[in-house]
């Protein structure tokens, strides 16, 4: 399968690191090489958060993704910080509810998904991140549907297993955007 280097970025509390973990677990389930590297900083809540995720079939060198194949951005500062770094030919998936920018790069594909609004409308509050993962899945097919299901089951903590269905619905919703 294709090597995937992704950057996910937004505010702390938007589930950026969680969304990255879902991608990483997809790789684990499919027995691929995987790395997940979070930003870490002094802000526990409300600050910026991002993570680098790599899926590959060869051992992974640098887990820090400098030129992502895929960027998922969930706020303006993250969009501004990473949009120029996207590898030519890569894609950016932006939450257009929260990001008012329009990209003028012609060498990448940019998908505007009103994920936060969709999540609110569809009773999936807090799952805008997973809607964007759904869109990424549709665009890149980075893992099988079965792997995604298993990955979500692994990522959702035992005390919140009732949220698995909502996560899977969010994936489907994202896929169809």
């Amino acid at each position: 399968m294709k090597t995937l280097n992704a950057v996910l970025a937004g505010f702390g509390g938007q589930g950026i690191l969680f969304a990255g973990k879902v991608i990483a677990y997809c790789g684990l389930v499919e027995e691929r090489q995987v790395s997940w590297l979070p930003s870490y900083g002094p802000e526990m809540r409300g600050g910026t958060a991002n993570c680098s995720v790599c899926l590959a079939d060869e051992p992974i060198g640098s887990p820090l993704v400098v030129q992502p194949d895929v960027l998922i951005a969930m706020n303006n500062p993250s969009y501004d910080k990473f949009i120029d770094a996207v590898r030519p030919g890569g894609i950016a998936i932006v939450d257009s509810t929260l990001i008012d920018r329009k990209c003028d790069r012609e060498d990448i594909a940019v998908h505007y998904v009103p994920a936060t609004r969709l999540a609110d409308e569809q009773n999936l509050k807090g799952l805008a991140n997973i809607i964007l993962i759904g869109k990424m899945l549709a665009e890149t097919e980075f893992a099988s549907a079965d792997a995604v299901e298993k990955a979500i089951a692994k990522c959702v903590p035992p005390s919140k297993q009732h949220l698995i269905d909502a996560n899977l619905r969010a994936i489907e919703l994202g896929k169809n955007q």
């Binding site: 973990k21 990483a24 684990l28 090489q33 995987v34 790395s35 997940w36 590297l37 979070p38 870490y40 992974i60 887990p63 820090l64």
Partner: peptide, 10 residues
């Protein structure tokens, strides 16, 4: 270092 400590890998 912080990268190896913070990163997840299988």
């Amino acid at each position: 270092d912080g990268m190896l400590g913070q990163m997840m890998e299988p």
